[in-house]
Amino acid sequence: MSDFWILLTGALVASCCGVLGVFLVLRKMAMIGDAISHSVMPGIVIAFLLSGSRDSLLMMFAALIFGLLTTFLIQMFQQSGIQSDASIGVVFTALFAIGVVLVSLYARQVHLDQDAILYGEIAYVHWNIWELGGVNMGPKAVWLLGITLLVITSVIGLFYKQFKLCAFDPALAAAIGIPVALFHYLLMGLVSMATVSSFESVGAILVVGLLIIPASTAYLLTDRLGVMIGLSVGAGVASTFIGYGAAVVLDASIAGCMVCAAALLFVIAFLFSPSHGIVIKKLRMRKLA
């Protein structure tokens, strides 16, 4: 039964990240995704210190605020003349450092240690059960991730057209009256939400692997946005399964193995993608010659 819950959690994380990752990769904001996944840390820790529990709405809210704060600060520094990559670097390292210092200082009060931040605790997901009136409703993480996925799919589904246009041609989107900045912050808010609900399972740093790698894999396989989202989710879920299998065999970190599996799938797509793969291109050239 624990295998089932771990795989379900992993699949949900991969789906949340897969959908959003596509937009990050298309808008060339992969590193902003990385920054957000680091800088929601202090939000999580502060909410944890205030409420003392791990799965509160407060945590989600605090992380959301820090995610948006990160986006805002990066934007502000960029406008004041700092190069974009440097402003990303300054902001997320500072916020992440605050988070780590808080964890270290209150490590005894808080049931949250550095290992949990880095690796996540997907192996213990099924211990943390949500009971409603004495009835076992399944792990809390699954519920949290399920709700996050629901929010993400409904927001993206409702504004699919707008997100699509903002991803490919923000100037045109602005010209025809779509509030581009609003959609930018909406996307970043969703990324923060996905990060914080995945945080517990795969850890703060590996979330970014699941955000960017499956989406990039999908990007190499297709030229259509709808198909790309599907493929990205598919690649994410597949790497969850392969990663878990590998982790059981090797007795190693599950989250780490999941990211490695995602990277492996990316390498395969990079080499053998029917339209963009290196090997396929070489073969085609040889046939022509």
Partner: peptide
């Protein structure tokens, strides 16, 4: 060699290598 931009390439390499690092770290610990 692909249509991916530098930021995505950096993200992939960063998280891929770090994932591998964490796997190796846990292997060493166990």
């Amino acid at each position: 060699n692909s249509k991916l931009k530098q930021d995505a390439a950096m993200g992939i390499v960063l998280s891929g290598f770090f994932g591998l690092g964490i796997v190796l770290l846990t292997l060493i610990q166990h």
